[in-house]
Design a protein around this nucleic acid. Structure first.
Lengths: 152, 152
DNA sequence: AATTTTTCGCAAGTAACTTGCAATTTTATC
DNA sequence: GATAAAATTGCAAGTTACTTGCGAAAAATT
């Protein structure tokens, strides 16, 4: 796994449960597990990947979807599109409200995902504010052919 | 329709057919029509919207999908994700190869899509090139709440 | 104009994601 | 800590974007 890890945000089970409580979400086994898994990986994960990690026999994927939906509504996670046919999910960093988020690059050949430096694009959000938009968000993601793949 | 039109690229039927020929695509009625429709709208369109525009009784949506897929493969169009559950498609500008592309902002409330100024992000493509990636592409799109919606 | 090749319409098939319902777990109340 | 109320889960069925196989029709090649 090539993914660069800028800083480790792994949660303990306790911390995960606190995080749920703080956001008014019930502290079930599944939801706690999802938070742990998301916190341990610096790359955003798909519902399928989370399901695999938990063990398909241990829970139904519909429960994962319901949990992810709730996390999104409560602002715990960010939904990321990397040009695939599904979304990926990433924990927001509770310590750095708005600005501490990353963009990614995905190899269109092998699918490897690498994290880029912290986002510094407030410039753009200001630009679109001039159009009268409020509460703006931006999606900036990259694809390309990674070094390994272009040598083959 | 609020969408800002920076420059009109509407094609004539003749021009559309030439464009298909130049890309080695057969000049069928459907494909010609799709090009015309895409060229007349500055905002990217979904397969559904194109189908509606042509008239659902006039062609099957699977033909539109097949055409769009071919356009993508031949580099005629760009696939755009605006945080919706489907992709939108946009004609690439044949006159300005790589750099003349736009990003967009979509209102998360009313769905209105507005075109932003021409892209000036080669900076980013250079940045990811340093990671060893070749043939990079970026997706930068915005969402927000538009002025109209925030007054309601 | 005849033949080969590609495309089309239709119907059936995926895959991501959603939803209704009864059973179980979690939370709130005592 | 037991109990009732509320939320969550598994399962099965549904929705939607997109794909695909096949015979008929249109377009390209001769």
């Amino acid at each position: 796994m090539k993914t660069h890890q800028c800083c480790d945000h792994s949660l303990s089970t306790q911390q995960a449960k606190e995080m749920l409580a703080q956001h008014g979400i019930s502290r079930t086994q599944i939801k706690t597990k999802i938070l742990l898994i998301l916190s341990q990986d610096s790359k955003p994960l798909s519902a399928q990947e989370i399901h695999q990690e938990i063990g398909p026999q241990n829970c139904d994927i519909s429960s994962i979807w319901r949990s992810l939906k709730q996390f999104q509504e409560k602002g715990l996670t960010r939904e990321i599109n990397l040009g695939e046919e599904f979304f990926r999910y990433q924990l927001k960093d509770p310590n750095h409200e708005d600005d501490h988020h990353h963009h990614h690059i995905r190899c269109r050949q092998c699918g490897d995902i690498q994290q880029l430096a912290e986002c510094n694009l407030n410039v753009f959000d200001k630009m679109v504010s001039k159009l009268g938009y409020q509460d703006t968000e931006h999606y900036l993601e990259f694809t390309g052919i990674c070094a390994d793949c272009s040598q083959r």
